[in-house]
Design a protein around this nucleic acid. Structure first.
Lengths: 105, 105
DNA sequence: ACTTCACATAAGCGCCGACTTATGGATTGA
DNA sequence: TCAATCCATAAGTCGGCGCTTATGTGAAGT
C-alpha cells in the first residue's frame, strides 16, 4: 500500500484522528490516552499501531510504559500531495479564470 | 459525519483519488473517465458521488451527459486541518493559505 | 515469589465500503 | 416510434476495519 493511502486511511477515522490530535499536546503513554476516549485500551493500542505504520507517530519504550509522540515529518507526504494541486490551481488561474466563477457560491 | 472525516475518507481510496487527479486535467464526462480505469461505469459513478458529497468535485448536467470537475475550494478543510498541526511546515502552509485566500476572491 | 500494572496481540463479531451485474430514467439519433 | 447512449441507483457479494473480550509478555511493587 502506498504511503499516501496509508496516511489518508489512518486519518479517516475520527477516533484515531482525535488520538493524533491529543498527542499534539505532548508525549503520552497508552493508558493516559484511554482516559480521554470512550474505547478500550486495546482499541487505543490498535489506533496507535496504525498511526505508527503510517509514520504519523513514534514510540518510545521505557520500562512497562510505551510513550507515543507526534512525528511531524509524517505529514509531509500529505502536504506534498496537496501542493501538487497548488500548481494546478495556479495554472488554472493564470490561464483560464473560469474557476473564479465556480468559487463564488 | 464531519467534513474532515468525509474528505479523508473520500481521498483514502486509491481509485477514487486517481479519479480526482484525472479531473485535475480538466472537466470530464463519466464515460470518458471509465476509459482510464479498470472498473465499471457504476463504480466510477459511485466514486464521483462520494467525491461530490465530500465537496471535492462539482457536477454539470448537459443532456444525457454529466460533466464533473474539480472544486478547488473543497480541499480547504484539509489544508486547515493540516495547518492546525503544522508548525513544521509553516512557510509552505502560509503559501498555500495565501493561495486559497486568493482563490476565494 | 507473587501480584499488580502497562501494553500488545489474538480471535471473533458486526458493519461498512468497493465492487459487481442488473435495471430504470432520461436524452439523442435514426 | 424505436433503438441506442449516458448515467444513476438497486441489490448482492466479499473483504477489511473498528470494536470487543481474552490472553500473553514484561516490568515494577510488596
Amino acid at each position: 500500500m502506498h504511503r499516501e493511502t496509508e496516511i489518508f486511511r489512518a486519518l479517516a477515522d475520527p477516533t484515531r484522528r482525535a488520538v493524533f490530535e491529543r498527542l499534539t499536546r505532548g508525549e503520552a503513554a497508552v493508558k493516559s490516552l484511554t482516559a480521554w476516549f470512550d474505547v478500550s485500551q486495546p482499541a487505543i493500542s490498535q489506533h496507535l499501531a496504525t498511526l505508527r505504520r503510517a509514520g504519523l507517530v513514534s514510540e518510545r519504550r521505557q520500562g512497562r510504559h510505551a510513550y507515543y509522540r507526534v512525528r511531524p515529518a509524517g505529514l509531509k507526504p500529505l502536504v506534498n500531495w496537496i501542493e501538487h494541486y497548488q500548481a494546478f490551481w495556479l495554472d488554472r488561474m493564470s490561464r483560464l479564470k473560469a474557476l473564479l466563477k465556480e468559487i463564488e457560491e
